[in-house]
Amino acid sequence: MVERTIGAFSSFFDESSYAEGYASKKGLLQFVDPRFKLVGMLWLIVCVILVTRVEWVLTILGVTLLLAVASNVRLGYYLRRVWLFIPLFTLVIAVPAMFNFVVPGQPLFILLSKGDSLGPLVSPWTISITVPGVQGAILFVLRTGAAVSLVILLALTTRWTDLLASLQSLKVPKAFVMILGMTYRYVFVLVGIAQDMSFALKSRTLSPERSREVRKWLEATIGVLFRRSMNMSQLVNLSMISRGYDGRVRRATRFRAGPFDWAFLCFLIGLGLILIMLRNIVLINGI
């Protein structure tokens, strides 16, 4: 079990290392400067939170699908990644909100009326699913789906290193960006060490492992990994100092924005503004 888990970690990191996948394909989002893409996607996520009607959230979802198609992302793969787990997690949160004791309103479906008998017991309340409760739950699930769609689209079409560099351009502290990058870098090294240790155990194991022995081995592995990561961090620090690091991080800028990047960002900002303004118009007119 432990061996399989470490193996799965290792192959996941191998894949993400060697296969740049959609990020290296030719497509609309791959062509956009990552900084503009990041800002545009974050802006749309804010809009998803601000808009109040299901159809507007659906509009943003439609835009993400169009962007996915224009970026050569396979729709089946994309939709599976977004919608496979979202209903599970969001419904757990959204389901209670559909009931009248959380969101009161016009009942859509009455589960239990006041005075109904449940065997020897008599219900003291009416329990129903309300129309505003269902509307709220649908909006919640769609909002979550739209936000996750945007994040996944950004992650699929942007290399991890470009995302990091974009964060730096958005004035996220350089040291923080550097630590993120180094963490990602050394996870590969440590997973490799853990896998080697698991192979070493396997090569010396003659009978099926008992769970107590596996637990002991796991404890030892965690200790060794901790020690090796400490040693590695000391060496990395020395290597940085030997190349002039004095505690202040200096990094090269990587991107050059063109008119297309600005046009893309303006489009997304414009779309978001229209949807938010529609919300205000609706609020003023009470529609």
Binding site: T161, G181, L235, V236, R243, A252
Partner: peptide
């Protein structure tokens, strides 16, 4: 350094190579 992994801490090769001159 003996262990190249401890020396290559940047996300990309060109960033690694640019590290020392930028720091200096």
């Amino acid at each position: 350094f003996q262990d190249a992994d401890s020396q290559l801490f940047s996300p990309l090769v060109w960033e690694e190579v640019s590290f020392a001159p930028l720091q200096l």
